[in-house]
Design a protein around this nucleic acid. Sequence first.
DNA 1: GCCAACGTTGGC
DNA 2: GCCAACGTTGGC
Length: 155
Amino acid sequence: MSPRKRYWLMKSEPTDFSIDDLQRVRTEPWTGVRNYQARNFMRQMQVGDGVLFYHSNTAVPGIYGIAEVASAPYPDPTQFQKKSKYYDEKATREQPRWDLVDVGFVRKLDRGIALDEIRAHADGLGEEFALIRKGTRLSVLPVTAAQWKLLLSLE
DNA sequence: GCCAACGTTGGC
DNA sequence: GCCAACGTTGGC
């Protein structure tokens, strides 16, 4: 028995990996998260959870696609790879530090939902929504069912 | 355990 | 490219 579907938002710099890249490869291991809070959220993920695909560090930051969690959490292989920029010398196979999930493509949004528009709905989303909370830079964050619905209604 | 220095994120 | 905000590291 699995708990009900949950929702998340995951950020990526489109120059690094965009929703178009995900559409091309269909599924992608979400490597490189090196923030404990973000990691802990990924550890809670279940296959089938909904994911809002967010482009950060770009001309118009915002949500550009829908994805889904496509695997259970497992250790991020890049933490063991000496040549990877994500290599972590303190991680061992016996005691990995960083976990990830595979993310699967669902669809691109007809129209991106810009951060500005998201901010304009702060009242409905709630003060605690990490995406628009001042000073929060989490790259993986939870989204409630109500927030998911509201955000996608802006499409 | 404190905190300064440093690195990173991400909007602008 | 700038820089504010935050997290991490490491000396003490």
